[in-house]
């Protein structure tokens, strides 16, 4: 039964991917990309990767779709040119796939607990997490503490993308760019004139925010953490913006607050790391943050996850507003 289900999901994945590449309508392609992300998230889930499934669903299916649609609104929806050099591209791709397939022949058996990948480092994490950090979610323990330096880098990748998009979309526009749509006064803003989205959306927004906060602070006990929470909270605000309009959303959470979130979150992570140095140990060593090293580890993880959530929320919302604002005047 499980095998059938797995095969079904995977086949659907391939069909969706082919459909995405073949369609000439970019709106359709983006929607299918959302479905593709959800299918991958489902695959992750049945492969026991709960955190990753949550992240892929929130970030890949959710935020990514919003960003692509935002870009499509500013560019064009149709792919005009037919693919040139089709045969050559197919040939290159076929050769490359044969090379990669070659690699899979000697790989260890799927699911084998004695495979090299499950020896050495992984059992150490499973064994030592209760002793050093004592939280149920091992993925958060590894992400937040054992490999916390990678996560610091990751926060700064997000931060870089945020300032990058803000930088690019703050440029004065060239000659061909100006959109002449002036909104007549009193015109409908957002989806206010549509009753169903408005009512349902207004009901959903507080629940999404609450769920985002839950995911943020329960990342140690179940799937969750800063990245997923940041994406969810940003999604709540984006939904609000779609319904009530962008200006209203900026009144609720202005750009200066978003800047503070972006910068503050990244710095919070860095300061927690430096606290380890000032308290006599190494950078990002949380054991010295409290009298009991295990509590110190837990406190450290809570703080850095908060920093992550802040930066991700700030960046994703700033990017959304940057795209939305480019559409006005």
């Amino acid at each position: 039964m499980k095998v059938l289900f797995g095969v079904f999901l995977l086949t659907l994945l391939v069909i969706t991917a082919v459909a995405i590449v073949r369609t000439k309508n970019l709106f359709v392609a983006v929607m299918l990309l959302g479905i593709f992300s959800l299918l991958i998230a489902a695959n992750f889930f049945i492969l026991d990767a709960a955190d990753v499934a949550l992240t892929e669903a929130a970030v890949g299916a959710g935020i990514s779709t919003v960003l692509f649609l935002g870009a499509l609104a500013l560019t064009s929806e149709h792919e005009r040119t037919a693919t040139p050099h089709r045969l050559l591209s197919f040939a290159v791709v076929t050769v490359a796939s044969l090379v990669v397939l070659y690699a899979t022949f000697d790989k260890p058996t799927f699911g084998d607990p004695n495979a090299p990948v499950h020896q050495h480092v992984a059992p150490w994490y499973l064994e030592k997490t209760p002793e050093y950090i004592d939280i149920p979610n091992v993925v958060t323990a590894v992400l937040g503490s054992f490999r916390g330096y990678d996560t610091l880098g990751e926060v700064f990748v997000v931060f870089t993308a945020g300032i990058g998009v803000l930088f690019l979309l703050s440029a004065r526009r060239g000659p061909s760019g100006r959109r002449q749509t002036a909104e007549p006064p009193g015109a409908a803003v957002g989806l206010r004139h549509d009753v169903i989205p408005r009512v349902v959306g207004r009901l959903l927004v507080p629940f999404i925010l609450l769920f985002g906060l839950y995911v943020q602070f329960h990342g140690e006990y179940g799937p969750g953490g800063g990245f997923q929470a940041g994406a969810l909270i940003a999604a709540a605000f984006i939904l609000y913006a779609l319904i009530e309009g962008e200006e209203q959303t900026l009144r609720a959470l202005p750009q200066s607050a978003l800047n503070a979130l972006m910068v503050g979150g990244a710095l919070l992570y860095g300061v927690v790391g430096l606290a380890g140095v000032f308290l006599g140990s190494n950078f990002l060593d949380y054991s010295v943050l409290a009298s009991n090293p295990v509590s110190g580890q837990q406190m450290g993880i809570i703080l850095i996850e908060a920093g992550v959530g802040m930066t991700v929320t700030g960046v994703l919302l700033s990017i959304f507003h940057a795209f939305a604002a480019r559409d006005r005047a």
Binding site: V59, V157, V158, L169, F227
Partner: peptide, 19 residues
């Protein structure tokens, strides 16, 4: 988890460039 976030960051920047 890290790679997914890196991926979306690259996509966001790429879309900014396309706009």
């Amino acid at each position: 988890l890290t790679a997914i976030v890196v991926g979306i960051s690259t996509t966001a920047l790429g879309l900014g460039i396309v706009v």
